[in-house]
């Protein structure tokens, strides 16, 4: 029998707090991508999700949250969405029943990791890495953007007014992004908090 790989966290650093802004690894989350099939797939998918989760899939770069379970739908490109929910197999099987025949469903839970930056001043820290405008007038709660944090591709989701930002990042880049964000958190200096693996 094959040896199973032991489960290790993508980031081993403890949460870092500097000046009221906290950077932390979000506990494992279920992430599933939806890609509507060509033709009538998109409209059919929107209808199915509305029936099962009570929300309309966004057609602009935003997230909508379903009150039927702790689930959010993030726009991730034309006819593509990411579903983010609690860590269990339940979300995937629920989606499979709901819309598995009208879209490509792919589990991204092992692909994406979420880092959270929160607290007063989080915007200033995020702005040091992100090339997009995060001003509250143009980027507010539940706004989503696919962009680059330095050289690392990320999906940024503002999850709270405070503000708080969730960075959905490829697992293999999570440690580097944690490092880059902790440097941004400390101004431009290296410090003791810089003990990423």
């Amino acid at each position: 029998m094959a040896d199973l790989l032991s489960a290790t966290l993508p980031v081993v650093s403890d949460p870092v707090t500097v000046g009221g802004v906290t950077l932390e690894l979000v506990p494992p989350t279920s992430i599933v991508s939806l890609g509507a099939f060509a033709g009538a797939g998109r409209d059919e998918l929107v209808g199915r999700v509305r029936a099962e989760f009570g929300v309309d899939l966004p057609d602009v770069s935003r997230a909508v949250r379903s009150s039927y379970g702790n689930v959010a739908f993030l726009w991730n490109g034309p006819t593509q969405w990411l579903v983010v929910g609690e860590d269990s197999g339940e979300l995937f099987s629920r989606l499979q029943k709901c819309c598995g025949d009208v879209c490509a469903l792919t589990s991204q839970g092992d692909s994406r990791t979420i880092l959270r930056l929160s607290g007063m001043g989080a915007r200033e820290v995020a702005t040091r890495l992100l090339p997009i405008d995060l001003h509250g007038q143009v980027f507010s709660t539940d706004c989503v953007a696919s962009t680059l944090a330095g050289h690392i591709p990320v999906i940024v989701w503002q999850t709270a007014q405070t503000p708080a930002y969730d960075f959905l990042v490829f697992r293999s880049f999570a440690s580097s992004l944690f490092h880059d964000l902790s440097v941004a958190l400390n101004g431009h200096t290296f410090s003791e908090t810089d003990h990423y693996a």
Binding site: V60, S61, G77, P78, P131, I132, A145, S146, T147, L148
Partner: peptide, 10 residues
């Protein structure tokens, strides 16, 4: 048309 104004590096 979907993401707004972005830099060339994207």
């Amino acid at each position: 048309p979907f993401c707004g104004s972005r830099g060339l590096e994207e």
